[in-house]
Amino acid sequence: MRVELTVNGAIHGVDVEPRTTLLDALRDNLGLTGAHAGCEHGVCGACTVLCDGAAVRSCLMFAVQADGIAITTIEGVTPGPGELSILQDAFCETHGMQCGYCTPAMILAAHALLTNNPAPSRGDIVDAISGNICRCTGYAQIVDAIALAAERIRGVNRPPEAGA
């Protein structure tokens, strides 16, 4: 079946079987391997992408359901070659990862959180990433990274005369 996917702002026509998940289409048809398969049954969150800005599990959507939806992957939130977003940089600053397998999904979940809630409490952060299992880190440095990014993003937005 032919489907037009809008991914990171560009439209891609792909031929997929109806049973092809969005995750597999992104990885296999579009070569966007930043979304990872952890369980393929909706629990681990490693496959998280943004659909119209909301974090969703791409293993629980079929690609044929995704036309017309603005899909954002980790590749789409990276500013450019060799450049990191504030959130990505914050993950590096606190070492909010180990093996890196859950990391793109964590960053996208955090991205969705900070878009709606620029000043999250630690509880908000914990809640927002609770659907993303990380086996390596015990979450502490991930929560730190998101809190740090929130602070920095707020700093960037503050008018210079505010003294920040």
């Binding site: 969150g45 909301a54 969703v56 629980l60 979940a109 609770s130």
Partner: peptide, 9 residues
């Protein structure tokens, strides 16, 4: 009900 990501769909 599940997580934010499951409630989104």
């Amino acid at each position: 009900i599940g997580h934010a990501a499951t409630r989104a769909r």
